[in-house]
Structures are given as C-alpha cells and as structure tokens.
Amino acid sequence: MTTDSVNVPPRNTRPPLAQAALGVGVVVQDGEGRILLGRHHGGTWELPGGKVDPTHESVAAAAARELREETGLGVPVDAVTVFAMVHDVVGGINRISMGALVSVEAADPQVTEPHLIAAWRWTDPEDLPGPLFDPSAQILAVWRPDLGIGHPPAHHLRIAPPRDPGPTENS
C-alpha cells in the first residue's frame, strides 16, 4: 500500500466529480385538460419545477415539493408520475430534466415566488404561449409529441407512459 492510498477514501464513499445538474419539470393538468405555465420575469413561460435536492430526495418528491413551493398546490408524492428523462448539455454541463405529470380537478395556483414568476396561467396545450423555457419545451415535447413543440436538441428516454393519475386535492 502506498502512502497516497492511505489518505484516499474508499471508492464507494468518494463523491463523483460534478458534471451534471438534475431537475424536474411538472406538467400539471386540470380537469379541462389545460396545463399550468408560469411567466418568468426573464420572458419565458415554464412548467413548475426545479432542482432535485441532494438529500436523497426522489424525483417524485422533488416534483411535489417544487409544485407546492412555487404555486401553493399540494399533491401527494404517490400522485406524481415520472414519465421521462431529457438530457442536453449547456455550458459543458449535462442537464438532466425529469418530466413529471400530476392531475388536479381544479386549482388556483398562487405566485409564491414573485421574484421569479410574474403569473401562473392555465393554458390549452394546443395554444402554448412563447417563448418556452428550453427544459419545459423539451419535457412538453416528450409528453405530447403531437404538438410539434420546437426546442433545442435533446436526448430523451421515456420512463413510463404518461397517465392520468386522477384528481388530487390541493392543500
């Protein structure tokens, strides 16, 4: 054993070199088939969502947490269907965006982060506003390929068919 290997932690406990960012975008569909989009102060429209916390949080738990934090809408984690992974590269960093789907019968989203989002709006998927935030466009294109949504190139992997998990109550 060399002197150098004495100070090196075992391979399974060493953190990997950071080279990716992991987030989730939540397609929230209401009883009329509309989806929820937020108008970001930067000028784009986006799905609720954000990063998956590095606390052993699952993607579904992150989706439910981000939805609650950004809109005030509460859904149980088991009402979240993670349906796809989208992968692109921005600035030399792999960006992994997970697509999640939840359904609510009716809901009144609140602007809880006014420094980021100016307004939430229920939108017919066939009449999407623009421009869309790139990761949101990529997730929506996997969710509904029939919509022909333009977006930057990305790889995608369908994890599960998107399904209607049924209405949930907001809290």
Rank of each mutant, 00 (worst) to 15 (best):
M1D: 10
M1T: 12
T2A: 10
D4T: 15
V6T: 13
V6L: 15
V8M: 13
P10T: 09
N12V: 14
N12M: 14
T13Q: 07
P15K: 13
P15C: 05
P16M: 06
L17Q: 11
A18S: 14
A18I: 13
A18L: 13
Q19E: 07
A20R: 14
L22K: 05
G23N: 06
V24R: 03
G25K: 03
V28D: 00
Q29T: 15
D30N: 15
G31V: 02
E32F: 04
G33E: 06
R34T: 01
R34C: 08
L36H: 01
L37Y: 00
R39L: 12
R39G: 01
T44M: 05
E46R: 10
L47D: 04
L47Q: 09
P48D: 00
G50W: 13
P54F: 02
E57C: 03
S58K: 08
S58P: 02
S58A: 03
V59R: 01
A61T: 05
A63F: 03
E69N: 12
E69M: 04
E70V: 04
G72N: 08
V75C: 04
P76S: 14
V77N: 05
A79M: 08
V80R: 09
V80K: 07
F83N: 05
A84F: 07
V86K: 00
H87K: 10
D88H: 12
V90E: 14
V90S: 13
G92P: 01
N94L: 14
N94E: 13
N94P: 00
I96F: 09
S97T: 15
M98R: 04
M98A: 14
M98Q: 11
M98F: 15
A100N: 01
L101V: 15
L101I: 13
V102G: 04
V102A: 08
V102I: 13
A107P: 02
D108K: 10
D108M: 03
P109Y: 05
V111K: 09
T112H: 12
E113S: 11
P114I: 02
H115M: 11
L116I: 07
L116A: 12
I117L: 04
A118P: 01
W120Y: 07
W120A: 04
W120P: 00
W122Q: 02
T123S: 05
D127Q: 13
P129M: 02
P129Q: 02
G130W: 09
P131K: 03
L132M: 08
D134P: 07
P135D: 12
W143Q: 02
W143V: 05
R144F: 09
P145L: 12
D146F: 06
L147D: 05
L147W: 14
G150E: 15
H151I: 08
H151M: 04
H151T: 07
P152W: 03
P153V: 08
A154Q: 05
H155Y: 10
H156L: 07
L157G: 03
L157D: 10
R158S: 12
I159H: 04
A160K: 11
P161Q: 14
R163H: 11
D164L: 08
P165K: 09
G166E: 08
E169W: 13
S171P: 15
S171W: 13
